[in-house]
Structure formats: structure tokens, C-alpha cells
Amino acid sequence: MADLLPQKLRADARDNRDRLLEAARELFSERGLEVPMREIARRAEVGPATLYRRFPTKQDLIDAAFTDELHQCATIVHDGCADPDPWRGLCAVVRGITELNAHNQGFVDAFVTSYPGAVDFTAHRAGMLHALADLCRRAREAGALRPDIVLDDLILVLMAGRGLASAPPEIRPAAARRLSALALEAFRAAPAPAELPPPARVALVVLAERG
């Protein structure tokens, strides 16, 4: 029993850290980097003392949240490329990156605007593009991806998905799923009618916009 207590404490600490980072990314995405630390702690459902114990300064939290965001992106691409079925891996990448961008792209944009030289994006992007190019090649060779689809088409879809960050938070998940499904049906070498996710009601959002 004595050994279980330290394990539980470590697990609780990891859970608190994950919740704080998730809350920070959500609030930074919604309202920018000026969100007060206490609001982040409240969203994560932890006390301010826990927040400051994990992240003594706001800059520490911002840096950790952005590093975690890049790690999530890299993990999605790595796991998709490691799938022995290249089409399944490509589908996982398109869905995963689109959902990630829809959820937190506002935070990424705010970070890059505030700290333009903080991260070597050239190296990060070059590694991702190289891996995705190889995944597309494998999917074409397997006969799953249309032969006229190139890496630029995949990047075009992922860039379009970034625009979902401007939609109201409550419709972003449905919009990301729908966009991914439509794109993948267009990419498929032998389209077979499949049931699409429920549509995202974005027309009503556009109608409600002013200006």
C-alpha cells in the first residue's frame, strides 16, 4: 500500500498538468494570451496554488502549452505515417490535424504573433512535410489514393481546416469531422458511397454574422 501512494500522487500531478495545459490552450485560443491565470485554473478545475506550483510564471505556462501543441501535431503525423495501412494512416492524419487546428489554431496564431522568433518552424514543417509526402506516395502505390493527388492537395485541405478556428466553439468539432470526411472522399482512388458525419450547421452562423 505504501508504494501505491507515490504512484497516485504522480498520476494526480500529471492529470493536473494535462488539465491546465488543455484549459490554457482553450482559453488562449478563445481570448488571446492575456487571459488571467486564475481563469485558467478555474477552467481546469484546480486551485491557483496548483497552477503556480506547476507553472510559476505565465510565460512558463504559455511556453509549455505551445510545446505541447507542437508535440500533439507531431504525434498525429508520426502515428499516421507509422500505420502499416497508408490509407488508414492518411485518414488519421487528415482527421487529427483538422480537429487539432479547429480546436486550438487561435492559440497558435496568437503565440506566433507575440513571439515570432520563438520556434524554428522551418525545421518543424520540413520534417512534417517530408513524412506526409512519403505517406501520400505509399497510399498512391497501394492504390488507395487517387494518382493525381499530390502533397500540395493535402496541405490545401489542412490549411482550409485552420479556418474552422473562427467558427463558434460549439460547432467546430462537427465542422472538422465533416470537412475531413468530404476531403477524404475526394482523395479516395475508388470512391465508394459512405455515410458522412452529420453536417455542421455553418450556414446559420454565416447568416448571423454582421459586416
Rank of each mutant, 00 (worst) to 15 (best):
P197K: 03
C81K: 01
A190G: 03
E185C: 04
L151V: 05
L156I: 00
E195P: 01
R10D: 11
R10T: 08
L129G: 01
R10Q: 14
D68E: 11
E209K: 10
R14H: 14
A192L: 07
P36N: 10
G89K: 00
E69T: 09
P197R: 03
C73Y: 14
E30Q: 15
A24V: 03
L20D: 05
G117N: 11
P197G: 06
P116K: 03
E170N: 11
L158E: 07
N16T: 03
H124C: 06
R54N: 12
V108H: 12
M128W: 11
G96T: 02
I149G: 03
A181W: 06
A123T: 15
F107R: 01
Q72N: 08
R177W: 06
R95L: 05
A192P: 01
R162N: 12
A189P: 02
D68L: 04
A123R: 14
T67I: 01
G163E: 04
G96R: 05
D79I: 01
Y52N: 06
P48I: 07
R138M: 03
I171Y: 10
L27V: 06
V112I: 12
P116C: 05
G80K: 01
F187P: 00
R140N: 04
D134M: 00
V77H: 04
C136Y: 06
V202L: 14
N16A: 14
V119N: 02
I40E: 02
E26H: 06
H124Q: 09
R14Y: 11
A110H: 04
L61D: 01
A123W: 07
D60L: 00
D153Y: 03
C81P: 00
V93W: 10
F107C: 02
L135W: 02
A41E: 09
L90R: 03
E209M: 14
L90M: 13
P86F: 02
N16H: 10
Q59S: 07
P48Q: 13
L21T: 00
P199W: 11
L20S: 04
R162K: 15
T122C: 08
L204P: 00
A160C: 09
G117D: 14
A65C: 07
S166P: 01
P169D: 08
L100W: 09
L156D: 15
G106D: 07
G106Y: 07
F55Q: 02
A44L: 06
A176T: 07
R25M: 15
R14K: 12
L21M: 02
A13R: 15
L129A: 10
A203C: 04
Q105T: 09
R172W: 14
N104E: 09
A190T: 13
D60E: 07
R43E: 15
A203G: 03
A2T: 11
